[in-house]
Amino acid sequence: MTQTLDQLLQETKEGLQSQQYLADDRTVATVALAFLLEKPILIEGPAGVGKTELAKAISSWKKFPLIRLQCYEGLDEAKALYEWDYRKQLLALQARKDESQSVDDLFSEEYLLERPLLAAIRANEQVVLLIDEIDKAEPEFESMLLELLSDFQVTIPELGTIKAKQRPIVILTSNQMRNLSEALRRRCLYLYIDYPNPKREAAIIRARVPGLKAQVIDDAALALSQLRNMDLRKAPSVAEAVDWAEALSAMGIETLSVETVLQTLNVLIKDHADMEEAKRQLTRLAEGMKK
């Protein structure tokens, strides 16, 4: 049994790696557990650390289709779960006006419009269901999800309860705009993704931007960790770091000096006040280094 769990961990690690997603041990363990226990994963963390990317990586690694539900304020059942196709129902009523047929079948599969959640439940093959930025939706919507997350079933009053044929792999992401309910947390495995440490960030950049010199990559990763320590309003994300590395590669940079960082800072920082602050601190750093 120990062997199989180990194998699963190893498999997960390699699988994610094959999609160019370099996961840390905690991510690997959580994803492996999600497979083992068939539980949803709740991912929290700052913006731009690859929360959504993880769902995409799992989907392309397992070759499962990805069904994505983007949450926003005002999202309701009709947009997330199902809706009756009332136009079709109306037409059907019109069409059979003369025949004295019963109207029982008006609420049948034929008139049901699938929305992402129902589609994930009724899919014939296993899918990855990504519920993105759940914190943006109202608490009411969160409560609606509970049945889906714990039993993988939804109840439609007119049709009854629909159970999942294949349990989907559910991934919820949150940017911690508000606190999620305990009930939701309890039903999920929890994963907090933070900014990667310099070593892992260097590995990520190496995988995505192979053209850059190894020394520059290492220095860039350390420079990024410096920038993130600077107490900026919006720290540079991993995606921005990769963009930056591409820019450095295109510029043909051989050694990463403070001047180069200052010149290319607009790729990493998108806020005026942050930019000023970062420039000030980097300049001070350069002066401190010369002494």
């Binding site: 350390l222 990463l256 280094m289």
Partner: peptide, 11 residues
């Protein structure tokens, strides 16, 4: 050490 490494090591 490059300057970034040194800074990092100090911290």
């Amino acid at each position: 050490m490059s300057m970034w490494q040194r800074q990092h090591a100090r911290q």
